[in-house]
């Protein structure tokens, strides 16, 4: 009977993990800004030199504002993704907000690899594919180049949509974010998500070290996200009026001081 109990428990847990995988994958697909079919139909057209120069000749303020708008649009979809993850809405609202403030941009960076052309080193932005030089007017070449490096390296792993979905959920449900009220509950959710990710990687017969590679990506994502905040702070010092009057309110809530 002891064996029965053990096997029932492990079966229940497998069923639970399968259920979580399905929910997270479905949520990811439902809340991706561009669906699989749309991606296939996309012309993957790059900006021509003249267009690149137009972006480069924009003022720093205008280019920052444009990027803030695009990031905010992407983040709204990430909020919807979070809401549909099993257990997220059961967290207290403080913790929901803490997780989104800390993790939503990181999920946008993960999702970026769906809209990234590795060969051209270009990302879908404002209607066409843009290389790092399109973003020169922002005045943060180092951060842009790191974001592109990250996208290149994530793309090289060729993650499936299921794997991307669970990796995104794993990042979003990080239990070590500051100011969480109920760390334990978030930790439980994250552990379940990690099991689901492991399970999917096994099912997809992925190489042994992939989970370790993804864990390393978590620290890269944190560094990108905090560097974005630093760049924004520096920008605000000079252009506080532009930020106050022209930046999307949600962007300010997420990244403002």
């Amino acid at each position: 009977s002891n064996e029965d109990t053990v096997s029932t428990a492990s079966m229940a847990s497998t069923a639970e993990i399968d259920h979580l995988s399905q929910i997270v994958s479905r949520s990811h697909l439902e809340t991706c800004q561009y669906l699989g079919e749309e991606l296939q139909q996309m012309s993957w057209q790059s900006f021509v030199q003249e267009e690149v120069e137009t972006y480069q000749s924009k003022t720093q303020e205008v280019m920052w504002q444009l990027c803030a708008v695009k990031i905010t649009e992407a983040i709204q979809y990430v909020v919807e993704f979070a809401k549909r993850i099993d257990g997220f809405m059961e967290l207290c609202q403080n913790d929901q907000i803490v997780l989104l403030k800390a993790g939503s941009l990181e999920v946008v960076f993960i999702r970026m690899c769906r809209l990234f052309d590795s060969q051209k080193n270009a990302v879908y932005f404002d209607g066409k594919f843009a290389g790092p030089d399109v973003f020169r007017a922002l005045g943060c070449d180092d951060l842009i180049s790191s974001v592109f490096d990250f996208a290149q390296s994530l793309c090289s792993l060729h993650l499936t949509e299921d794997e991307l979905a669970l990796f995104s959920a794993f990042v979003l449900l990080s239990a070590d974010r500051s100011w969480l009220q109920d760390k334990l509950q978030v930790e439980k959710l994250q552990q379940k998500t990690q099991l689901a990710l492991q399970h999917v990687l096994q099912k997809n017969q992925r190489e042994e070290g992939l989970l370790t590679k993804l864990r390393y990506k978590v620290s890269v994502l944190r560094s990108l996200s905090s560097r974005h905040t630093e760049k924004l702070s520096a920008f605000r010092v000079v252009h506080s009026d532009i930020v106050r009057t022209h930046f999307p309110p949600l962007y300010k809530e997420l990244f403002g001081a």
Binding site: E30, T31, Q76, Y77, V79, E80, K83, M89, Q93, Q96, I97, L100, K101, P249, L250, E253, L254
Partner: peptide, 20 residues
């Protein structure tokens, strides 16, 4: 709450502002 007004709204809305 005032500080995260929009996030609160997005989290509480059953219908999202995003046209999914």
């Amino acid at each position: 709450k005032e500080k995260h007004k929009i996030l609160h709204q997005l989290l509480q809305n059953s219908t999202s502002p995003v046209d999914l």
